[in-house]
Every structure is written in structure tokens, then in C-alpha cells.
Design a protein around this nucleic acid. Structure first.
Length: 553
DNA sequence: TCTAAGTGCGCG
DNA sequence: AAAGCGCGCACTTAGA
């Protein structure tokens, strides 16, 4: 089930159904001719196999992901029966996503997999978008989402270059030698120090309730065993316990067993889940791709003859907020410099630290503490930006939905939420009912407040990635002698995205292309800003580094 | 023996 | 123990 849209403008379609067995060669040939967009039920199902067969695809339309977007989008006026087509809600189970295309022919569940169903759904999606309140934005969002789905598979196929030696050296330095079943020596030593400080040689350190009781017996009256609370007390057990937790975390989350499970052939290949978060951010499944500790960055190493380019966007979310609210004061504060310094110069607050805390508080919905205290000053200086997030919060508290810049819409309030609110409105509602209702309303308000900003930032990042992907593909591949074969047949000879995390990317590139890649990364960031926000005067400055490791500065 | 929920911590 | 959003994973205990 594959269809080809032969019309680059996308207004008319000519479709061709391709047999699975012919797919790689047919698609390779049509790609070479150009101007093609592949329409398929689920990118994961198709693209992993194509990539391992050495076939790259320029453009696609992921019916499942676009269906999910349109199902919830507030801009949709006539859904043409889309919401009732529940079969498209099903994701392909992880167990069916394998590296060979052909094993998927008999997929037992997942979205519909006939050409007829796909064509019908595609036409419906086009109709829904064309007849919506914001067709241009939704079209862009659908294209960006689909590009993201391609990129997620490509990131997995290429992988992040990972040095087992550097990782192992770090583990030995921090934990000591690996000792089979037994804990490494440094962890045992830390545990012994904790038990000595507790005066309890048998104390259990890995069970939160038991550890808490041990701490109380030793005279440390904390309410939790979290590092934050421990650090506020002056007690001989604090330092060794914090050290123990730190080492144990490294050992269990990213130790030798993580390495042997997730690093294969010099590559870390996490599974990315595009739009896995309601806001449109990506999630990941397996390998903890989105939680790799900075400490482990030393293990990210370019192949010989290759180098790594790491780039992240400075203060992406407040910049996006400035653009979507058309707040020129905030844009002025951000343009050409560190946004937080600009906020200080605008006179809103006294220090950069205050600016950061206040701005994050505005986007997350802080009400108390330093952040809450600084908010009124931010509102005075940047009224439009603050009005946008305040309004999003109010809509959420009232049970409404909010949308990102391109039209991704938040989920509605659940049945449980409504029940809590309506109970508080009953004649015989108790004070507890009212408190609970108010609190859940506020909770939801903070969610919708953040949704519009986090979600629009995710859209900007998708636009950045999609644009960059095209620029990287246009660079000359290197000779076979300079190849990095572990990056796979498609990416072994050309610069490729190797990692992505919300506002940061790592590109693995032949060294000869490093400067060209840096230019491409900068230009694509600028292009993403223009694509989303037109001529609104705001830049998206990057912190960009080139080197053989991907350590952050 | 399985699942769900709680806790804590890593990332943005 | 986070005040203030969004995640995933490891480990434990409680409950069926």
C-alpha cells in the first residue's frame, strides 16, 4: 500500500499502488525523478525497511499522524467523517516494527493497510484541511509532522556515534571495575559510608520507605529521600547518601547493561516517537534517549574523518512566545542577544537570573515564590506576550481547548475533570469539593498555558529539522574510502542528523563538510523562523559547536 | 506472578 | 521538596 502524489503543488493527485516486494526499487526510481510525495499509513512501518534497503525518501504524508492532528484540531470546520474513522487511531505495535520491510505485510493491527483505505483517508484529510479555518497553517503542520516522521526513522537508522571505550572508561573512573552480579567497588564503598553514618550495618538503601525510616532513626527528620531535601540538612549521612544515589543512578540507568543493550556497532539507536507528547514534542521509547545525562556526552564520538556539529537554540520558548503574541517589546529584548539579558535591559527585572526565573514562571504558571513575585513586572513590560499565556491558562481553567501557532489543539478536559468541576457546583458541595475543583482547574490552566508555547516551539523545531534535512541531502557525498559505514547505506557517505532533543541537534558529518553543515544549520534556523512567523522581526540564535565529541559548553 | 502506583532523577 | 510545564526509566511496595 503506497501511493504517489505526482503533483508537486498537491492540488491534484495521480496515484500508483506499489506491491510490497517491488517497493524499494520502485520508490528509488521515482525518487530519482523527483517531485514525489509518498502517502502511507504509517511511516514507521515503511521507512525502516526502505532505509535498510538503501532508499531515502524526500517527502511523505503520514496518514496516521495527520489523522491524529485533524481529529483534535479546533480549526476543523467539517471533518468529512474523519473522527468516525476510528481505525486510523491505531498505532502500529512496537513489536511489529522491525528492520525488514517484508515482515510487516501481515501486520495484525495498526492503521488500515490497503491502498483503497489510504487513498480515501488521504482525500478526506485534504478536504478537511482545505475547508478548515486555517488551511495554510494546517497544511504546513501536516507536512512538518510527516517530515518529522521521516526524520525519526532516519535518526534511528543512522544512530548517534557512540564510543564504548569512552563510556567504559567513564564508568570505571566513576564506579570502579565491573564486577558481574556484584555492585562495583565505588558503590559498595559509598553504601558502607552511608550505613556507618546511619549506625545501621544492615540498612536498606534502595527501598524508599525503609531508607526513610533509617534516616529518622538516625535523627534526620526528612519527609522524603530526595536529594533536594537531603541537601538542606546538615547531617553526616547526607554527603555519602547523595554520592551513593548518584553512583547508583549512573550504574542502573546508563551502566554496562545499558551499554550492551543499546549501543550496537558503535551507534546508539534510540526509538524516537514523533508527536509522542500531546504538545507535539517527540517522545522516545527505549534507551532513555531523551534523558542521556550530560555526564555521558564524552561517549559521543565522531567516526575517523568525521566530526560532530552540536547546535541548540537559545531560549526557544520565550522567543516563540514573542513571535506568536507579536510582542515587539519582547522581540526587541531577544533580538541579536541573550534574551534574558535583554529582559534585564528592558527594565523588567534586575538580574539575568531573575529574568530567567520570571520568564519560566510565566510560561509554566508559577504563582508563588520568587517567580510569582516577579510576574507583575513582566506583565507590565511585555503585556502582549503575558496576555497570550494568561489567556491560554484561563481557557484551560474554564474547560476549553487551546491551539498552537500552526493549529495543534490540546486535548479536551477528561470526564473525571468535568465531574470534579460539576460536583463543586452542586448545592450541597463541600469546601473540600470546591478546593479540589479549584485546584484541578488551576492544574489544567497551567497545562494549557504551557501547551501553546511548548507546542509552538516544537513546531519551530520540526520546521528547522525538515529544512536542514533537505540542505544536508544536497551536499556531495564523500568517497567510499571516507565512508562511515556504521551509519548505514543511506547516510554512511553524507552528513546526517544523529540526535535531536526538543531544541538541540547533533549532526554527524564528514569533516570536509563541517563548515557547510554549520552554514546549513544556521540558514535552516532562520528559514524556520520565516516559515512560521513571516517577517516578524525576531531571530533564533544558535549555540553551535564543532568537534569530535558532543560535550556541551 | 502479574500489574499498578509511588518515588526519585535524568532530560528539555 | 519543589515552588512551575512536558516526558521515560529503574526500582520498590501494595494489591489482586
Amino acid at each position: 500500500m503506497v501511493l504517489i502524489d505526482l503533483d508537486a503543488t498537491g492540488t491534484a493527485t495521480t496515484t500508483v499502488t506499489i506491491a510490497l516486494s517491488d517497493a524499494p526499487e520502485t520508490i528509488r526510481a521515482r525518487e530519482a525523478a523527483g517531485g514525489v510525495r509518498w502517502i502511507w499509513n504509517d511511516t514507521r512501518a515503511w521507512y525502516a525497511g526502505l532505509l535498510s534497503a538503501g532508499v531515502r525518501v524526500a517527502r511523505a504524508w503520514d496518514l496516521r499522524l495527520v489523522h491524529a492532528l485533524l481529529r483534535d484540531a479546533a480549526a476543523v470546520i467539517d471533518d468529512h467523517g474523519l473522527r468516525a474513522a476510528r481505525a486510523w487511531d491505531a498505532a502500529l505495535p512496537d513489536t511489529l516494527v522491525v528492520d525488514t520491510l517484508f515482515d510487516l505485510a501481515e501486520a495484525a493491527s495498526g492503521p488500515p493497510d490497503t491502498a483503497e483505505a489510504a487513498l480515501e483517508e488521504y482525500r478526506r484529510q485534504r478536504d478537511v484541511i482545505d475547508g478548515s479555518a486555517t488551511p495554510a497553517a494546517l497544511r504546513l503542520l501536516a507536512a512538518a509532522e510527516s517530515a518529522g516522521a521521516l526524520i525519526a526513522e532516519e535518526l534511528h537508522a543512522a544512530g548517534l556515534p557512540w564510543s564504548v571505550d569512552a563510556h567504559g572508561a567513564l564508568l570505571e573512573r566513576e564506579l570502579g571495575e565491573r564486577r558481574g552480579q556484584a555492585l562495583p567497588a565505588r558503590i559498595e564503598e559509598a553504601a558502607a559510608r552511608v550505613r556507618a553514618a546511619l549506625g545501621d550495618p544492615a540498612a536498606s538503601l534502595d527501598s524508599q520507605p525503609r531508607l526513610l525510616r533509617s534516616l529518622h532513626r538516625a535523627g534526620l527528620f526528612v519527609e522524603s529521600t530526595s536529594r533536594w531535601e537531603l541537601a538542606e540538612h546538615d547531617h553526616p549521612v547526607v554527603a555519602p547518601l547523595v554520592a551513593y544515589k548518584k553512583l547508583m543512578r549512573l550504574y542502573t540507568a546508563n551502566g554496562w547493561s545499558w551499554m550492551s543493550e543499546w549501543v550496537r556497532d558503535g551507534r546508539f539507536r534510540p526509538v524516537y516517537v514523533p508527536a509522542g507528547v500531546v504538545t507535539g514534542r517527540w517522545a522516545s521509547s527505549g534507551g532513555g534517549a531523551l534523558q542521556i545525562p550530560r555526564q555521558l556526552r564524552v561517549a559521543v564520538r565522531a567516526d575517523p574523518g568525521w566530526t560532530l556539529l552540536t547546535a541548540d537554540v537559545a531560549q526557544l520558548e520565550p522567543r516563540v512566545l514573542a513571535a506568536m503574541s507579536r510582542d515587539t517589546a519582547l522581540a526587541d529584548a531577544a533580538r541579536g542577544r541573550d534574551l534574558y539579558s535583554g529582559v534585564v535591559e528592558a527594565g523588567a527585572v534586575a538580574t539575568r537570573a531573575e529574568a530567567k526565573i520570571a520568564m519560566l514562571g510565566a510560561m509554566y504558571g508559577a504563582t508563588t515564590g520568587e517567580s510569582g513575585r516577579l510576574l507583575p513586572r513582566l506583565r507590565r513590560t511585555f503585556p502582549r506576550a503575558m496576555a497570550l499565556v494568561d489567556h491560554a491558562a484561563r481557557v484551560g481553567e474554564d474547560g476549553g481547548v487551546v491551539s498552537t501557532w500552526l493549529g495543534r489543539t490540546s486535548p479536551g478536559p477528561g470526564e473525571a475533570w468535568r465531574a470534579v468541576q460539576s460536583r463543586a457546583g452542586d448545592a450541597e458541595a463541600s469546601g473540600i469539593d470546591e478546593t479540589r475543583a479549584r485546584r484541578s482547574a488551576r492544574d489544567r490552566g497551567r497545562f494549557t498555558r504551557n501547551f501553546v508555547v511548548q507546542g509552538t516551539a516544537a513546531e519551530w523545531a520540526l520546521a528547522w529539522l525538515a529544512d536542514l534535512r533537505g540542505r544536508l541531502a544536497a551536499l556531495e557525498p564523500v568517497d567510499a574510502a571516507d565512508a562511515a559505514p556504521r551509519s548505514g547505506p543511506v547516510f554512511g557517505r553524507r552528513p546526517h542528523l544523529a540526535f535531536y532533543l526538543h531544541d538541540e541537534i547533533i549532526v554527524h558529518t564528514p569533516s570536509v563538510h563541517a563548515e557547510a553543515v554549520a552554514t546549513a544549520v544556521r540558514e535552516s534556523a532562520a528559514a524556520a523562523g520565516t516559515l512560521l512567523f513571516g517577517s516578524f522581526p525576531l531571530d533564533f540564535p544558535l549555540d553551535l559547536r564543532i568537534g569530535d565529541t558532543a560535550e556541551k559548553g
